[in-house]
Design a protein around this nucleic acid. Sequence first.
DNA 1: AATGAATGAGCATTCATTCAT
DNA 2: TATGAATGAATGCTCATTCAT
Lengths: 217, 217, 217, 217
Amino acid sequence: MNSGFYKDTFMKISEEKRQRILDAAIAEFSEHGFDSANINTIAQRSDVSVGSLYKYFENKENLFLAIVHVGVEKLKAVLEDIIKSDEKLESRIEKIIKAIQVHTRENVHLTKLYNEMTTENRSSLVWKIVSDMENATAGLYASMIKEAKEAGYIRSDINENLFAFYLDNLFIMLQFSYACEYYKERMKIFVGEDVVNRDELVAEQLMKFIKGAFFLK
Amino acid sequence: MNSGFYKDTFMKISEEKRQRILDAAIAEFSEHGFDSANINTIAQRSDVSVGSLYKYFENKENLFLAIVHVGVEKLKAVLEDIIKSDEKLESRIEKIIKAIQVHTRENVHLTKLYNEMTTENRSSLVWKIVSDMENATAGLYASMIKEAKEAGYIRSDINENLFAFYLDNLFIMLQFSYACEYYKERMKIFVGEDVVNRDELVAEQLMKFIKGAFFLK
Amino acid sequence: MNSGFYKDTFMKISEEKRQRILDAAIAEFSEHGFDSANINTIAQRSDVSVGSLYKYFENKENLFLAIVHVGVEKLKAVLEDIIKSDEKLESRIEKIIKAIQVHTRENVHLTKLYNEMTTENRSSLVWKIVSDMENATAGLYASMIKEAKEAGYIRSDINENLFAFYLDNLFIMLQFSYACEYYKERMKIFVGEDVVNRDELVAEQLMKFIKGAFFLK
Amino acid sequence: MNSGFYKDTFMKISEEKRQRILDAAIAEFSEHGFDSANINTIAQRSDVSVGSLYKYFENKENLFLAIVHVGVEKLKAVLEDIIKSDEKLESRIEKIIKAIQVHTRENVHLTKLYNEMTTENRSSLVWKIVSDMENATAGLYASMIKEAKEAGYIRSDINENLFAFYLDNLFIMLQFSYACEYYKERMKIFVGEDVVNRDELVAEQLMKFIKGAFFLK
DNA sequence: AATGAATGAGCATTCATTCAT
DNA sequence: TATGAATGAATGCTCATTCAT
């Protein structure tokens, strides 16, 4: 049950306090990156003593991993819900795109964290946590595509693994483009200052892009 | 000529030494990220004294910006060459994909740096340098697509800016997938352990993906 | 109450520890001057960690200003006590001279610090703290003289501000001559090796000098 | 002949270059104090290479001592000229006061340097150079006073050494009050913002102060 | 269990001094 | 003799982690 990143004591405190700590940590880590994030600041932000923080988490790294875990679980929940539904491929993809737009805006910090996380420093540590999700998504996408392919619904001359990969690549970049300053600026350059207010257009065109790639016409 | 990140003295030293410093800095920054990168280590790695390093660069930040600048210029050169050629859209895209595969493998550190750079901390500083390149690429892709659209070569119901954006998103993720540990692992999960040896397949399928998205069938 | 140079935490530690820190700082700064004073040494001397020192004071400068403040307050207390008494001018001056001799010997480091402080580097920062005291003394001396002048007790053809200034000049040099190596050596050259043991003579003659300057005969 | 602070080579360069170096050094040391003064800056300011500077002076300290020496010699020359004249005491003192006002304004840097020099750090090293001058002045003042005393020109109940000492104290403070920021501000507080433009008043009142102290009335 | 003061290793940066040219 | 690039020890300050209360 325990993901191994927090100590048992962390589960003995009130739900509210636990959340305060996680929120503070997510904010701090996503704003400053792992190295510059300050444990003492996280303690202040969450109105908890440093001492306590170290009663709940072995060290800075584990606190980081714990929140990455939380973030991943949250995203996984959102995606699985959609992918596992038995609607047809097209509408599932459409739902994912819209879900990404909503979820990313509501969890900007978590998304920044996800980007931060892919950085060299921490990647090996973090991989243990994330591989799980990536595995899940990768599998789901691939089988979703395979299914559609077998049903003659999409073209048959494609490698479903690679196509799943490219599809997810587009989704990841969409997330970052909505949450991370750098990618947001970049998107504005490509599309114009007001993209951020034109979610439907972005979704519609992305849908068109993907459909073209997948579907027979 | 001088990008403003290094002092004039940096240009007075031997080409070989200059390269040694840049390489050491690129390696250190890409391995540890800006904050954890150690100037003293860079000095040792490049067999130069710390004092000298500070004779060449105002401070840690400027050294970082200088190498980002170098990286960006290098990549820009590669891409512009291809995009500006007057071959047809299809073969230009194909060339870009292949160029990314080659360039990224040859410049793993620089690519890691690019990822590192998109991280919150430094993004505003770095943006000045990179926006330039993003602007160039964005414009080139968009006009390339517009042209093809007007020539009736690709479909006419698309927003060229957004399609250029999605296209570049795929390229960026391809780069990271070849250079950054995290993304490399992820790619393996999606496609299998041996992807890294199957460049042709990756390129071919990506080509198929993109062609589907763009071209009339 | 808080002069603004130390953080609140400084007042939460034991009186004894606080004094140890101030003493160590006063010694170090007065021995080496602001620039060469070593924070790490002050930490060792006062048997406190550097980290703690920085918990109590924002930075080196504030620590310096804090002890200057302490020194000034101490001296001010001594002088005000005497000047504000309502004895006659003559005996007040005599008391000041004796007080300087005693106080300076007991606070050699603080007096050295005062000298150090008048040095260019820090003067503007320090002025805020000291101007207060100088203002007080200047005013007190001047009104003391004015009063005596109006009472016909001393001569009437003098500018009380300038005479107050010259008087204080003599006092300042007396302080330095007892505390600072340079001025001490100088005094020995002027008066002989054993001046330091002849406080009464020094005081008596200075009294004579000043009385001549001020009083009608 | 060689004071021992510079190497022989220093005398082999042009008078003009030598002066440029001394001026730059005086300015730098008086502006920043010994520790913060920067040898490389002195080299730039005097348009001479650091290498050369080290050909002329053993190290930073010796350069400092060399300029102190110059300053002292300059001041000594001014004072001796006056003190050794055979005018009567009163007018010699008057001339000294005026000379101080003029010389100090013309040699602000040197005077700041003198103050800087009395600071603990350097005092023992510096003392060798200055003791010489102090000795000279002390002796001259004392014998000047003794003479006047024996001539019945001033009062006979005074210790000529101590009176010489107090007299010189007044002179030193006058110098500092014209040259050093800290003391200048202090003088303004005592006398008013426009003192700096009222040299005659300052001189006249100081004369009055001293005459009262010394002369029979 | 909770606190938060205390610790001290670690790193960016400066600058006196050297030495190859 | 003159140069100025190169050196690296030294120091202010930060922050993860500990531990006495």
